[in-house]
Structure formats: structure tokens, C-alpha cells
Nucleic acid binder design. Structure first.
Ligand SMILES: [Zn+2]
Length: 451
DNA sequence: AGTGCCGGGTT
DNA sequence: AACCCGGCACT
């Protein structure tokens, strides 16, 4: 009866599953053999510590060519790996394989690697080989590129295939990344222990997110970094701009995946605050094919709208979307219209970059989040101040599929500031409705006079 | 009351 | 996909 109906209607339905956030099985973390899970766990833990321990100061690696940025060496726990004492030489070369040891020196293309992480075995780019042999020496960290194994979930691959392919080669993202870290329980010696020829090394692909502060703005601003789906989801105005800069851009209305949250509730939640367009990254059509509720979840409806906390945090202080920089300057801050008095409303305040009208991005998701990371590690990528509180991110656990630790829904919501421009309706009047743009006629966001 | 437009329904 | 509209946020 009603109950049944209610059950049907309940937005939460089917969500409970994801709520139990099981740490997404690192799909890519395949076990080739008998490798004990413990090992992996340990590795994960270690890495966790490494990447997250806020305060860790590690003496610079002696001859490391590590840039502070990269490894922030601090991030390594002395005890864990004896990096300093060469006793442990992570560098491992795959025996019998022509693959060269890959050294990701820092920023180099950590980012890519990260992406790769997901599609790590896609073999597309992760094959980055350092030109500079020296780097290998410094190698304190490196690991080896194991044979590109297709072990990972096809899904993942699919997810990132696109991203990977589009990643600019020269992107420098200071994200610490250990592409494939093989950690064995035993001493390092084990690592080299009998090199079997084609045995695929059992490696644990790991990427360590770097501290937010370390992300160079350039990263976000990298022009080439805009991804199609991403761009497509941008507001018309913006997309148009993109179009100018990049030929391949469709002016069509970006569509966002419908959310599962009850629309009413959703709207209440999302509309109670000034609009702030937020990265649609997450609203990118579910790679997985998007039919599964759990998958779609993160592309919820007003997607892109994201609530800011009441505190007047300069939008500009947030992370930037790469695609937005084009618009910088002479853009009015959404907050500006909302609170005239806000000191932050002046673009000048935020370096030379301001967000496009009405939009702010808290974080980009170039790479999937590793489930194992503590929240505050991989989230809250804000340049200056964080609007998102750690606690807020845990509101909803992402389905394992999403791989993102943040779901738009779990983030504070905001909403687009209502454009003050006149739209077709106002311009032409009801009597000339036929002159309206189609969007207006359909009661959709005006295309002709986008905000 | 008027406007803008999201979400969802219909064709 | 095109089209329409209920209903809500906001002015
Ligand atoms: Zn219009």
C-alpha cells in the first residue's frame, strides 16, 4: 500500500548500499598471486601516513633530485621506508622486461600518473619514462612500471581513458605520485629476489595526493586541461568562451545528469543559497554508463550548484577550474551580486584570477580518489581557504563506483546567482514569444542572453 | 506579480 | 530530442 509506495519514492532507496561505504576495492589493485592482503594493507597505511601526515619533516633526501614539491619528502615516514638509508631501494626494475624504470620526478606528470592511477594499466601514458637517467638514481622512490596489465576494471579504464588521453603532456602537477609502489613485507632484498622473466610484478598502484597548497595555480589554469564533458557542462556563456579558445566546443546546452535526490528536497537544499556554479567535473556523465543509480548519484541535478557557507569566503580563494580562467577579469563575482558589501567581491582581490560569473570550483577531480585516503587528504583542495569542512564531505559516501570521495551532494551547496540580465521574455515580451530563444520558450535557461 | 528556469512529463 | 509546463526561487 502506501508503504510500498513510500519505499518506491524514497530517494534514499537504493542508496543505503552506497552509504555503507565500503572502501572501494581498489579495482586496479589486482593481486596477481598469493600476495597477502596484509601487505597491501600495510602499504596503504604507509602511504596514507605519508601523504597525510601533516607534520612530518624529513630530512631532504641526500642526492635526491626530488624537488621539495614532489615529495615533500616529509611525507615519507622515516620509519616506514628507510629512504635515507639506501637500504631500501624502491626502484625496481622489471627484469626481463624492456620497460624502463619509470621515474616520476615530481610534478613532472604526476598528475597524469594520478589519472593513470585509475587507468593505470591503460598503458596510455603511464609509460612516461624519464629522459633523465639521473633521476633514476635519485630514485629514492621510484618504482617500476609493471607491465601494463589490463587487470583493472574495464570500467575504470573507461572512466579515465578520456581523461588520460587529454591530459596535456607537460602538465606539472605537484602531486606526489607513486605510480606503482611495490611494497613487500620483507626487506628490500626481496624485491629483487629472483627476477622472473615475465612475471608481472605484484604492485600496488598508489598515488599520493599532494597537499593542496602545493598545487600550482597553473595546474588549474592549464588551458589544455579542459575536458570535453567538462566543458559541455559549463554554462552556455562559458562554453561559448571556451569555444573561442578551443575549436571543438559544442554550444549546446550542457546537460547534467538527473539526480536521485528528491527533487523537492533537492531544490530546497540547493536553492536556498545564492547560486554558485561549481565544477561540473563530477557531474560529468557517469563513465560507467550511468544507468546505475549509485553511479549517477554524483551527477545530481542542480549539479554544479554548490552552496557556500555563509562566511564570506572569497570565491577566488577557492580552487580554480582550468576552464574558467579564460574568463577571468571583468567577471563579476557571484558574491558580488549577493552581497554588495563584501570586500571580496572585487576581482582585484584575488590575484589576477577571478572566477567566471557565478561559478566557483572547489575542486577538480582529475584523478579518482583513493578510497583509502583519509578524507582530509584527498579532499578539500582549496588554494587558500577551505569552505568545505571535512565533516561535510562525509555526509554521503560515494559509491565505490564513483571513486570520488566527494560527491556534489555531499558538498555544501550553492546556487547560481540569478542573472540580472534581461532575458528573452523580458526583452521581447510575452506577446513576442515567438521571438524568444527556444530555451526561454521552453522555460529553460536562456541561451540568447546567458548570464 | 513578474521573471528565470529546474525538473519532469508528453509527444 | 523537441516541446511544454508545474512550481519554486527570487526580484
Ligand atoms: Zn532566451
Amino acid at each position: 500500500m502506501d508503504m510500498a509506495k513510500i519505499g518506491e519514492a524514497s530517494p534514499l532507496k537504493g542508496r543505503t548500499v552506497s552509504a555503507s561505504i565500503e572502501v572501494p576495492k581498489p579495482s586496479r589493485m589486482r593481486k596477481t598471486s598469493e600476495e597477502p592482503t596484509m601487505t597491501e594493507l600495510m602499504a596503504a597505511m604507509v602511504l596514507s601516513n605519508l601523504s597525510c601526515s601533516p607534520v612530518f619533516h624529513n630530512p631532504p633526501i641526500e642526492k635526491g633530485s626530488f624537488s621539495p614539491q614532489t615529495f615533500n619528502s616529509n611525507e615519507l615516514e622515516p620509519g616506514s621506508w628507510n629512504r635515507n638509508s639506501h637500504s631500501f631501494s624502491p626502484i625496481f626494475i622489471q627484469p626481463g622486461s624492456s620497460n624502463q624504470p619509470v621515474v616520476h620526478t615530481n610534478s613532472e606528470k604526476c598528475k597524469q600518473e594520478n589519472v593513470a592511477l585509475d587507468s593505470c594499466s591503460s598503458g596510455v601514458q603511464s609509460d612516461f619514462v624519464s629522459d633523465d637517467p639521473i633521476e633514476v638514481d635519485s630514485g629514492t622512490i621510484l618504482l617500476q612500471r609493471s607491465t601494463p596489465t589490463p587487470t583493472k576494471h574495464p570500467k575504470d579504464e573507461k572512466n579515465n581513458a578520456m581523461d588520460v588521453s587529454e591530459e596535456p603532456q607537460d602538465l606539472r602537477v605537484p602531486k606526489l605520485h607513486v605510480e606503482e609502489l611495490s611494497i613487500k613485507q620483507g626487506s628490500p632484498a626481496i624485491l629483487h629476489q629472483e627476477p622472473k622473466e615475465n612475471e608481472t610484478k605484484h604492485v600496488l598502484p598508489i598515488s599520493i595526493p599532494v597537499l593542496p597548497q602545493q598545487i600550482p595555480l597553473s595546474y588549474y589554469l592549464a588551458p589544455g586541461f579542459v575536458r570535453q564533458p567538462y566543458a559541455a557542462s559549463l554554462p552556455g556563456e562559458f562554453r561559448m568562451q571556451l569555444a573561442n579558445s578551443s575549436p571543438h566546443q559544442s554550444p549546446e546546452i550542457g546537460s547534467s545528469a538527473p539526480g536521485h535526490m528528491d527533487s523537492k528536497i533537492h531544490r530546497h537544499l540547493y536553492r536556498s543559497v545564492p547560486y554558485h556554479k561549481v565544477s561540473d567535473d563530477m557531474s560529468v556523465p557517469s563513465p560507467a554508463g550511468g544507468s546505475s543509480p549509485s553511479t549517477i548519484t554524483f551527477g545530481s541535478a542542480p549539479t554544479g550548484y554548490y552552496p557556500f557557507s555563509n562566511s564570506p569566503i572569497p570565491v577566488a580563494s577557492l580552487s580554480f577550474s582550468p576552464s574558467h580562467y579564460t574568463k577571468s577579469l571583468h567577471v563579476r563575482s557571484p558574491l558580488a551580486s549577493t552581497s554588495q558589501t563584501s570586500p571580496y567581491s572585487s576581482p582585484a582581490k584575488s590575484a589576477s584570477v577571478s572566477l567566471p560569473a557565478g561559478y566557483a570550483i572547489l575542486r577538480d577531480h582529475p584523478y579518482p580518489n583513493i578510497s583509502g585516503w583519509p578524507n582530509n587528504c584527498s579532499t578539500n583542495f582549496t588554494v587558500k581557504s577551505s569552505v568545505v569542512q571535512p565533516g561535510q564531505q562525509m555526509q554521503e559516501s560515494p559509491s565505490p563506483k564513483t571513486q570520488f570521495s566527494l560527491s556534489p551532494k555531499s558538498l555544501p551547496l550553492g546556487r547560481k546567482v540569478r542573472g540580472d540580465g534581461k532575458k528573452c521574455r523580458k526583452v521581447y515580451g510575452m506577446e513576442n514569444r515567438d521571438m524568444w530563444c527556444t530555451a526561454c520558450r521552453w522555460k529553460k535557461a536562456c541561451q540568447r542572453f546567458p548570464d
